Simulated assay, not measured.
Amino acid sequence: MKGPELHRGIRAAIQCLHRPTSSTHSVLAPRLRRHLTPKTFRCLTTDNHQGSESQPDFKAAPEIDLSPESQRKEDHEQASKDALLNRIRIVPASPSYFTAKPSFTDDLLSLQALLRKYQTLPVMPPGQAPRVAWLTLEEYKSMVGSEPVKSARYTRLVELLQRLNYINVELVPQEVHKALDRYKRAIQPNLNVAKKHFPDQVGRALGIGRRKTSVARAYLIEGEGEILINGKSLTQFFGRVHDRESAIWALKATERVSKYNVFALVEGGGTTGQAEAITLAVAKALMVHEPLLKPALRRAGCVTRDPRKVERKKPGKLKARKMPAWVKR
């Protein structure tokens, strides 16, 4: 830039500084752009703008804190904690809080964690682990607050419980014991002990059997094989050979027909129901004399009651379930 042109540009800039009513940019733009380079124009406008609007920055002296040093330290720590809490997001206590089944998911995850932790422990051979009756699905739902737990998912939880139950009894950790006790039923049927029966003073053993609507009471005593049913002999009471054999099947299966005398009282039902009721009653009385015969009687099917019953006819039907012909049309 030449000397005369520079002087004219500076003079024009000074004149613009003395015009408070007009904008610096609007006055400088038409005059300076003819004499100044873009760099010089930017410097002049920036300096002029800062000089016209800037105000001196005055700051008051900080407030004097006359509290003890310990109090100031506690206030500073509390302020730091408050600032930290403002930045922290509240995390739910359960990792599955936002799921539809938080309690069930927590239980499943805890059992899986226990299995991963103790899966290297030795297990009992199949069939030798303690028998445990676990909670049913309805009982578990009531325990966790009626959550919508499906049977398939609860079966997965029971499988984990059974796997933990197979750990060797002598090596089961206390943590596993505590977890398994939570899912056990209040009453364990496997721990029930059957009441022992003994022959009376005369040597008679009593057995009670039921089948359909028939009830039989059989008294068994050592003898020569005499059989009386309601005061009648076996052949007089039952006309069919099948019913006769069914009544004393427990003695035949164990080859004790000629060793005991049977005196039975039966009522209700038909001949088939009475014969099978006597079968169960004689088997129970025989186990009182010889408890070791129970496996043989079980294999012969004498100690298990048959729960089946005849389905009775219902109103509006020809039989128990058969509908009339006009209904089918």
Score class of each variant (00 low, 15 high):
235 T>F: 07
235 T>L: 08
235 T>V: 11
237 F>W: 07
238 F>M: 00
239 G>Q: 12
239 G>A: 10
240 R>G: 01
240 R>T: 10
241 V>C: 01
246 S>L: 15
248 I>W: 02
249 W>V: 02
251 L>Q: 05
251 L>D: 10
252 K>V: 07
253 A>N: 07
253 A>F: 04
253 A>I: 05
254 T>H: 06
256 R>T: 13
259 K>W: 02
260 Y>L: 05
261 N>G: 10
261 N>A: 09
261 N>I: 03
261 N>K: 02
262 V>I: 12
263 F>A: 14
263 F>H: 14
264 A>S: 15
264 A>Q: 04
264 A>C: 15
266 V>Y: 04
266 V>M: 03
268 G>K: 04
269 G>F: 01
270 G>F: 03
270 G>Q: 06
270 G>L: 04
271 T>C: 01
276 E>K: 11
276 E>F: 11
280 L>R: 09
281 A>K: 04
281 A>M: 07
281 A>R: 05
282 V>L: 08
282 V>S: 07
283 A>I: 04
288 V>G: 03
288 V>Y: 12
289 H>A: 00
291 P>V: 03
293 L>N: 03
294 K>C: 00
296 A>L: 11
297 L>D: 06
298 R>W: 12
300 A>E: 13
301 G>K: 14
302 C>Y: 13
303 V>C: 11
303 V>R: 12
303 V>H: 08
304 T>E: 14
306 D>H: 09
307 P>R: 08
307 P>E: 05
308 R>L: 10
309 K>R: 14
309 K>N: 09
309 K>S: 08
310 V>H: 06
311 E>D: 14
311 E>W: 04
312 R>E: 13
312 R>H: 13
313 K>Q: 14
314 K>Y: 00
314 K>F: 00
315 P>K: 11
317 K>W: 02
318 L>M: 10
318 L>K: 06
319 K>F: 01
319 K>H: 05
323 M>F: 09
323 M>P: 07
324 P>M: 02
325 A>S: 11
325 A>C: 04
326 W>D: 05
327 V>T: 11
327 V>R: 14
327 V>P: 00
329 R>Y: 02
